[in-house]
Design a protein around this nucleic acid. Structure first.
Lengths: 261, 261
DNA sequence: TATAAAGGTGAATCCGCAC
DNA sequence: AGTGCGGATTCACCTTTAT
């Protein structure tokens, strides 16, 4: 039997393969974006931008990245229940490759949700528009699977009695919410805000459902799942992230009120 | 020599082929996204739809749509000046296929601009979030072409002295702006608001530049180009649309004040 | 102690020319 | 192709330091 509310250490694709068919209620995936950053970037005051230069974000080519995504997305589709759905978040660097692969695998796009950042980093050089969004693809297993979970009335209530749209205005994960390492610096370069995961889990799962995150990182998905009285399974390769995530989740003692709506 | 400020009647791909290399300053494309996928995606055996065995070539309709887009986008890339850029608008139905193809052709994404509709049609069934956006991909010919036109300061002024972001809140094209046929019904099913084209043309062309629209429709691109003192070339297959567009553009007598900024 | 000023920072595909 | 350097370029929000 699958163990829930635990973090599995290992390679994402290998660990996904061990999970039974049609067993997961929701998947939230925040894969590497393959940002392809080359040169350093400086602000007008000459301070250096601390960009994403993690090894896990580096791929040799589009084709390498595509193969990686096709592999983990194939497993994700296999393990999803017929009532289940998947969310994948990305930026313009990767979301068009991911979206194309998902369509090819038979996923059915229900919404392309725009995370509209209230406080994005400006474009310092004035060469482009400020990149103020990331995109979340919300998909069912296929067009024929129509009984997916969507808590329409609950989300309407959550949104002040107006139907929630596909644009979510949410700030970056900063301040007290942002996990810091012992050196006082951000523990993970791409930690997501809890409000984002709250909307994802609240809208597309029911209490006691199982939420899987194949790129668990510092465990925002697990933390929010717990606060909403859902179960989680995390897959993560790096020990440091797992330690942080486990401590974060263990220390949670209060639920979100919306958990019982 | 290319004739400007005219509408060419004919097949988009055939007419694009007649345009010389490196001759166009800006392309705005609003391609069809009617992919008619139903037959392709319904498979006889619904119980065992496993992504592993699903070669994407089996999706006949995807493949047809991809081929069509690859063909017109290839010509677009050929005719763009090295300083030129291209905008392609789409919804979640097609933009992930289009974006993937553009990347494969060597286009370099500068922004994925979100058209955030202030008055979207609600989801009446309560089965999804209200789909409130369309996506515009703004791309240069390739990573190496860095001298593309971008009127950063002008757009900052246009945006109340703050850098414009990649999220544009603009209403649907309705009311007086929406062209009606003799039967009083909307003349074109997907007429775009002028404010959208205004931002596109204002930000990425200079006065007297040539803007090409391979899916001209009722000529919003031409109308806005004229009001901004730019030149246009339209390609359109349907006589009815051409007649409407020509009349619309001919009747323009006033410029936008921003044309001389 | 309260308020103000200064400094830091966020998934970033962010310059252009001369040598 | 790589390096060096002059010059143009930023928004919201949080933390730290100064008044």
């Amino acid at each position: 039997m699958m163990q829930i509310n635990t973090i599995i250490q290992g390679d994402c694709i290998e660990e996904l393969k061990k999970i039974p068919n049609d067993s997961i209620d929701l998947i939230f995936a925040d894969p590497p974006y393959n940002m392809q950053l080359k040169n350093a970037l400086y602000r007008p005051n000459n301070t250096k931008v601390d960009g994403v230069d993690d090894d896990w974000d580096k791929f040799g080519s589009f084709s390498e990245y595509d193969d990686f995504c096709a592999a983990w997305l194939t497993e994700c589709r296999r393990i999803l229940k017929e009532t289940g759905t998947i969310w994948v978040i990305g930026s313009y660097h990767n979301i068009f490759r991911v979206g194309n692969i998902m369509l090819n695998l038979g996923f059915w796009i229900l919404n392309d949700v725009t995370w509209y950042k209230t406080n994005p980093m400006p474009n310092f050089m004035g060469t482009r528009f400020t990149n103020a969004t990331e995109t979340l693809l919300w998909c069912s297993k296929g067009e024929q699977y129509k009984k997916y979970t969507f808590n329409h009335k609950l989300m309407k209530k959550y949104n002040g009695d107006k139907q929630m749209t596909s644009v979510w205005q949410i700030g970056l994960c900063i301040g007290a919410e942002r996990l810091k390492g012992q050196d006082g610096k951000k523990a993970h370069s791409t930690q997501k805000p809890e409000e984002l995961l709250k909307r994802v889990i609240l809208s597309t799962t029911k209490q006691d459902d199982v939420v899987l995150d194949p790129f668990f990182g510092t465990g925002t998905t697990g933390a929010v799942a717990k606060k909403l009285k859902r179960n989680f399974i995390g897959i993560e390769r790096e020990t440091d992230y797992i330690t942080l995530a486990q401590g974060r989740i263990d220390s949670i003692t209060e639920f979100f009120p919306e958990a019982d709506w």
